[in-house]
Nucleic acid binder design. Structure first.
Lengths: 280, 280
DNA sequence: CGCCACCATTCCGTATATCGGAAAGAATCG
DNA sequence: CGATTCTTTCCGATATACGGAATGGTGGCG
């Protein structure tokens, strides 16, 4: 069980990470974002005493992970921390491998392209390149998360997970989805079957009016999804004429990526897994 | 505050962060990127004993900041960590405020737009939106760093720092620059003077052949630079006809941002409640 | 095929960093 | 201008982290 506020944190490292997480929450988009948190607020949120928070914050400050506004005494995650993260999230070179493809696709299709990767029960947006047409999407920005099953890219990953994992994700995510959309289990399973059959996910879910998308999974050697390439655009741009063309291009690119990731290394008995272990 | 602030990490939190940093280094682009590090490599790099590294890695693993490939025993930063830190780097809402502007600019100008922010002696790329023309740049990707003074966006920040800070940065960065480019101090100071006079930085530095850029600083209330908006494109697209137009558009947008950031309200103005309202 | 070398992992006594109550400065509010 | 809330420092008791030593694995090499 993963409580949001880490009631079981015992070590100072865990407390430090908890503080980073709490700061990240207030740094996300919103009216107060960027303004940061005060020491006592952090202490309250994490059920720590002010001296403890103060000491840890001082360390985080010295290490450059956190920055403080000296006048307002408010703490927030630093730009350095942001820059550090840019070097993460590249499992199996996936992001590096896909960047040129993403750029090429958005230039060719003149739509916004997303690279999504699975992380636990979510899909996370690893990269994106905007087309000229502004769109809205579930994952939105780089680093954005969405439950596996919501949105074309996300569902195309879910559809091509190993059956056991797929069931586990569905079990876990259905309750979460009821809050976000109006998907019921029957609909979800129908969609998954369709995606598996077609090899791509499309159609507007109706959750974002006027928006539409297509996505294809990126499969590993075993034919299981590790990621997805997704096109987000307005509904008119995915009509019956254009859709097949886009799908065709996407499938070709995805197949190319499949060949490039986890290149067979004779030393290893198995290809390196692209997936992380951030599951249950 | 005695001495001993030196490189020798003492607390477990510092060691944990050091491990994250070391993992970030090997995760950056390169032939081995994405493959991760082994435990003993980390131990050697940080001059720690294997048991210590093992214990800390276990914590980081439990906390989801690090993921390990079970077969190869290699550790790397997790996608979760990536998602976490992607929420940082939004000082004073700067990124949120600028995103629509970045998108609008890249759609209008059909070039690649960067948002750079100062971090210490560097400029860091906070956001970017690619135009149809592929380009190369110093900062490159989101999260990329470049010494203040190299590149149009970077130098336009440097030029509009308070004089004292500007001198400090120049002193610190000149030695670093000699490795990167061929800038000498006279040239740098000439450029800075020119940028201050014109209010923007342009001209191809010649460091990236065929590439060109224009950038304008984003100023705070005191007229000091906190960030810059930069256009990166190929040299032909910044000829004498187009350059003034682009500069004009950029200046207008930058002025708009200046008004939006840190709306310093001298009266007692607490931004609602920090914990408050619509929690996710 | 089997030995060797290196690596990951566990154990545990010692040493030390961490914790938080108490209280002194700051800032803020009424 | 006094009251309240918050930040920061101090310090002793204690829990936690450390790393040497030993164990279990895994790949490399002869």
């Amino acid at each position: 069980m993963m409580a949001a506020d880490d009631a079981g944190a015992k070590t100072s490292l865990q407390r430090g990470l908890a503080i980073l997480r709490v700061l990240a929450e207030t740094d996300e988009s919103g009216p107060d974002s960027g303004s940061g948190m005060r020491l006592t607020d952090i202490a309250r949120a994490l059920e720590l005493t002010p001296p403890t928070v103060h000491r840890i914050l001082k360390t985080l400050l010295d290490e450059g992970m956190v920055e403080a506004d000296k006048t307002t005494k408010r703490y927030r995650l630093s730009v350095d921390f942001f820059a550090l993260a840019a070097r993460a999230g590249n499992p199996g070179n996936l992001r590096d491998v896909c960047r040129p493809i993403i750029l090429r696709l958005s230039a060719t299709l003149r739509d916004t392209i997303f690279l999504l990767v699975r992380s636990g029960f979510d899909a996370v947006c690893l990269d994106r390149s905007e087309g000229p047409v502004p769109i809205r999407s579930f994952t939105g920005d780089i680093g954005g998360r969405i439950a596996l099953g919501i949105g074309q890219g996300s569902i195309s990953i879910l559809a091509f997970l190993p059956e056991e994992e797929r069931e586990e994700v569905i079990r876990f995510n259905l309750p979460r989805m009821h809050g976000l959309g109006f998907l019921d289990e029957v609909y979800l399973r129908t969609e998954i079957a369709r995606v598996r059959e077609l090899g791509y996910a499309s159609r507007s879910t109706g959750l974002l009016p006027g928006m539409a998308g297509v996505a294809v999974p990126i499969l590993d050697q075993q034919g299981h999804a590790v990621a997805a390439i997704s096109v987000g655009t307005i509904a008119e741009r995915l009509n019956d004429d254009r859709l097949p063309v886009v799908v065709d291009i996407l499938k070709r690119e995805a197949a190319g990526v499949s060949r490039l990731i986890s290149p067979f290394d004779p030393v290893l008995r198995r290809p390196a897994s692209v997936l992380g272990g951030s599951g249950p």
